[in-house]
Amino acid sequence: MAVIRDMMPVFELFQPASIDEALNLLDAHQGDVWVLGGGMDSFDWLKDRTKRVSTVVDLSQVGELRGIKEANGGLEIGAMTTLTEVVHHPAVQAKFRILAEAAEVVASPQIRNQATLGGNVSQDTRCWYYRSGWSCYRAGGNICYADTPTAINREHAILQQDRCVAVSPSDTAPALVALDAEFVIRSKGGERVVKAEDYFLGPQIDITHMTVLRPGELLTAIRIPATWANAQFYWEKVRDRNVWDFPLVNVASAMKLSGTTISDVRIAVGAVAARPLRLTAVEAATKGKPRTEETASAAGELAIQGATPLRYNAYKIPLMRNLVKRAIRGNAQATT
């Protein structure tokens, strides 16, 4: 039978006006509720009937989830702040430009006007086998359709594959990891704060969830500490088309220099594994080294250690190596 893929099925819509009200609703409907942010991930699932939900908690009316506040030299960004607002915010532009650059290359102008920062980091993977409703590991089944001899897996993982080979599709996530951001998670029971790199889960930890959010919890804000304000930043995203497309690989780095020596550095890569990867080995190996072509090349080689290609994504290995190299070398010496 044909499946309707345009109109969404009927659901019960709740529009709480505050975080507390939203948390009460999540608590009352635990396990059977869909949290709706900007909708750019949600509506596809609902239209395709791949996820069936009866109750939707829409965060659009929760004013306290929107906006960017400056605090202690850093920022606190509400989870429902749109990507367009992030891109144009003067403090983001002035101090944490890498986040503006990452948010600005997400999808298209219309999507950035509506998509939220919280949604961009919390969205589900874009593996089309999974999104088409195939009963794969991530959907609770017992096979990965993207990792069979005939699978089409050009966009899939090269690192930390564990049954599932889907990748993290977020552009802002690696930038937030590089900025040492913290994610504020609230539930009726209280608040917990996790480091950006710990917000994301790989299949070895939880094969059916991309983030640490549990039922009844909401990501309410993202805090960016002053630590990396006005550091040397590098951001790059490689994709097939300059609009809409998710990253094939993206990279974000924040660096502090003393003269030409790298005194401290953060670097994260996206779309190579199920979670954005902070490259701690690269950070350790480059700290204290001069920022040179040689240091950058060694960093690139180190980054791809252990990378394993699938049938169609071997190109991602040299791509990741080169992006890491550029992210360490920086814009000044970049030639292409």
């Binding site: 893929r5 750019m40 509506f43 596809d44 239209k47 298209s108 102008p109 219309q110 999507i111 509506q114």
Partner: peptide, 21 residues
């Protein structure tokens, strides 16, 4: 119908959005 083509673009309070999404 998936926010991937732009045909449904409308202006909402001065900003463009995909009305399908």
């Amino acid at each position: 119908e998936r926010g991937e083509c732009g045909a449904c673009t409308v202006i909402l309070d001065g900003k463009t959005v995909y009305s399908c999404s």
